[in-house]
């Protein structure tokens, strides 16, 4: 078990190193001078040289690369400021003077994570329940109707769904639903200037972001349940005279939920990326919005930081699920004990 976990960890670190390297080389060959980007319109050779010296841009690529790895790595030689583990340093924003990218991402990431988690939660609940429901009625009218709807849902680009939902629920039905066209998790009161939690604003973005996963999870749950339901041990359980509820929750679901867990973990990371559109349209103050703003102002460190964080999260999540899988699934566990 430990060997398996360590092996997975090694693979994950190797992949992470690859990602970091790819991102570095992608962004160091950016046409245009980073020092120039930082200074904006000023064209003072002395200032340019000073900026280059400060950020090590005058050094050879290999040295820059080594410095970059040292900066972003969460593990470092212990010194007086930190132990073996340290906070990764993603550099300083070009456009927002003096702001650290890590703190900018730290401020926006929880919002995006909450949005993605709410969307996945919604998708698991609705998709899972509907999928389980139709798995008891294969090839019925409702089965076909829901399958068609879920294929349709999977084809909708999230920016289109966002526009559609904003229009229908916040504009046309606005007076009834009381939802806002745009808004973030925290609103600022117009009179007192106080920040207050506005959970209402989470509904539409989470719904929009959840539509595609609902379709995927519905089909997966249905197919997985049908497949497992045809197996011998389920027939045995039914033949023993167990109640259908017991058969479903104790025998069917644990086995059938494996592919669902894998897909959900895979989707979570891509939802973080897909949240870009939803955040823009609903004005949700998350990482996607930060990324697009950085893109439009050509703020290199923020763009780089966002890509790195999301990719790292993806690797960490898939590794975790792999290990979790081995712990839960007796067939895989047997191989390593």
């Amino acid at each position: 078990m430990i060997r398996f976990a360590l092996q997975k960890l090694g693979q994950a670190l190797f992949t992470l190193w690859g990602v970091a390297t790819l991102v570095f080389f992608l962004f160091t060959i950016v046409p245009g001078d980073s020092a120039q980007m930082m200074l904006g319109k000023r064209e003072d050779p002395a200032a340019l040289a000073a900026v280059r010296a400060k950020y090590g841009l005058d050094k050879p690529i290999a040295v820059q690369y080594a410095n970059y790895l040292k900066r972003i790595s969460p593990i470092g030689w212990p010194n007086d400021q930190h132990g073996i583990f340290k906070a990764p340093d993603l550099g300083e924003s070009f456009q927002r003077q003096g702001q650290q990218v890590t703190s900018l991402i730290g401020q926006t990431f929880p919002n995006t994570a909450l949005l993605a988690a709410a969307a996945i939660g919604f998708a698991l609940l609705v998709g899972g329940a509907l999928g389980a429901w139709v798995s008891y009625r294969p090839d019925s009218f409702w089965d076909k109707a829901l399958l068609t709807f879920s294929s349709l849902g999977m084809s909708l680009p999230s920016f289109f769904t966002a526009v559609l939902f904003a229009w229908v629920f916040a504009y046309l039905l606005g007076p009834w639903t009381g939802l806002n066209l745009t808004g973030s998790l925290y609103s600022v009161d117009d009179y007192s200037g106080e920040r207050y939690l506005n959970l209402k604003n989470l509904i539409l973005p989470a719904l929009t972001l959840g539509i595609r996963p609902v379709g995927v999870i519905l089909q997966l749950t249905r197919n997985s349940l049908l497949q497992v339901g045809a197996m011998d041990f389920i027939r045995t359980a039914r033949a023993k005279g167990l109640r259908e509820r017991t058969v479903f929750f104790r025998h069917l679901l644990p086995v059938a939920s494996n592919p669902i867990i894998t897909t959900v973990s895979g989707w979570f990371a891509s939802l973080l990326a897909g949240a870009v559109f939803v955040e823009i349209i609903f004005g949700w103050n998350g990482m996607g919005k930060l990324l697009v703003e950085a893109l439009n102002t050509r703020d290199l460190p923020i763009t780089m930081g966002c890509v790195l964080v999301i990719a790292a999260l993806f690797v960490v999540l898939t590794t975790l699920v792999d290990v979790l899988y081995a712990v839960l699934d007796p067939r895989i566990r047997a191989e390593f004990f």
């Binding site: 991102v23 950016v30 893109l295 890509v307 993806f314």
Partner: peptide, 20 residues
């Protein structure tokens, strides 16, 4: 190499490439 590219969501990779 494939798993490295696979770890970066396509949309982000394309965004990074268009940045370049």
């Amino acid at each position: 190499a494939m798993s490295v590219l696979w770890s970066i969501p396509t949309l982000l990779l394309v965004i990074a490439l268009t940045f370049v």
